[in-house]
């Protein structure tokens, strides 16, 4: 018996020992090959946007896992703008601030008034985003350069038809010039998305203008307006430029399936005829039953009186 035990014991020890040896080797191999491989690779994407004059830079960080991009959250990103060197004397050249990505891997930097003032003369921006010694991810750097562009709106109503004219201008050598032959979008803001209107592929004319009619039969929002949006989208050169305006608009009659007394309404909103029929039937029958119970008690009373 004892012998058998010993035998088994040794037999079990051998593989353990082998695993130990192998693991020693393998650690050595990895250590020699690449000491930083424990950090993950991620990629960064920068985009620039002006919405109703408010400028913002958006950073998106993703990581590729099994062929799918998944967001990288909770990553600190430093953002620089090289044009305004004197902005922050302590941290360094053009440092705008740092951002932390959210669970969708996104972080947005909005320009404050102070910033806008500092940059009022600048029309070409060079943004740089970097990450610095994050514990999980390797350092990254990404850069975009954008030219400033502007959109202006005019509205005009004639014979109950409202036409929107949007004019696109860009800065060239510090001067604002109209941008012809450029594709733009006219949209109306709705609950779940932007509804395009006007012809397909709206393109600016020589004055840099596009015009589109708002469909007259379109219902407005609850507050008797609709929100019209003009958008120019050229991520490479100008970023996304968007301008929106609420204009007065009519509302079409709302559908409310609950206004009438129906078979599918609440109990307290039952159809009147149904209520009348059931209630009167109940009163009739239960009234008779009450009378019968009264008769029953009459029998009892009769029983008490002496013969």
């Amino acid at each position: 018996m004892k012998k058998l035990f010993k035998y088994l014991y040794i037999k079990r020890l051998i593989p353990v020992f082998i695993i130990y040896l192998v693991s020693l080797f393998s650690i050595n191999i990895y250590a020699q090959n690449d000491s930083t491989s424990s950090k993950l690779q991620a990629s960064m994407n920068l985009s620039y946007k002006i919405t109703n004059g408010i400028k913002s830079v958006k950073v998106e960080v993703t990581r590729k896992v099994d062929g799918k991009f998944i967001p990288v959250e909770n990553l600190i990103v430093n953002l620089y703008l090289t044009e305004i060197k004197k902005y922050d004397p302590i941290v360094g050249d053009g440092w705008m601030g740092n951002l932390v990505t959210n669970e969708d891997g996104l972080a947005t930097f909005k320009f404050t008034d102070n910033f806008n003032k500092l940059m009022s003369k600048v029309h070409v921006f060079n943004f740089i985003a970097t990450t610095n010694e994050d514990l999980r991810y390797e350092d990254m750097q990404e850069e975009i350069t954008v030219n400033e562009a502007l959109i202006n709106f005019t509205f005009n109503t004639e014979d109950a038809v409202t036409t929107v004219v949007a004019k696109l201008t860009k800065f060239q050598d510090g001067a604002e010039v109209a941008s012809p032959e450029t594709e733009m979008k006219m949209l109306i803001k709705r609950t779940f998305g932007m509804l395009p209107f006007g012809e397909d592929g709206l393109t600016t004319d020589e004055n840099g203008e596009v015009s589109a009619e708002i469909p007259a039969d379109l219902p407005g929002n609850a507050n008797k307006t609709i929100t019209v949006v003009a958008r120019y989208d050229d991520e490479e050169n100008n970023g996304i430029i968007e301008i929106s305006k609420d204009i007065p608009w009519k509302i079409l009659p709302k559908v409310n399936p609950l206004t009438r007394r129906t078979l599918w309404s609440r109990g307290n909103n039952a159809p009147i005829p149904l209520v009348i029929v059931t209630v009167s039937l109940i009163i009739l029958i239960w009234g008779t039953i009450c009378y019968l119970v009264y008769l029953l008690f009459k029998i009892k009373r009769l029983g008490k009186t002496k013969k």
Binding site: Y291, L292, L295, L296, I299, K300, R301, L302, G303, K307
Partner: peptide, 19 residues
């Protein structure tokens, strides 16, 4: 229920059963 076999009581029963 206080039944005493009185004719009046029978009358009531008959009425009640008819209803």
């Amino acid at each position: 229920f206080g039944w005493e076999n009185k004719p009046e009581q029978y009358e009531i029963i008959k009425r009640a059963v008819k209803i």
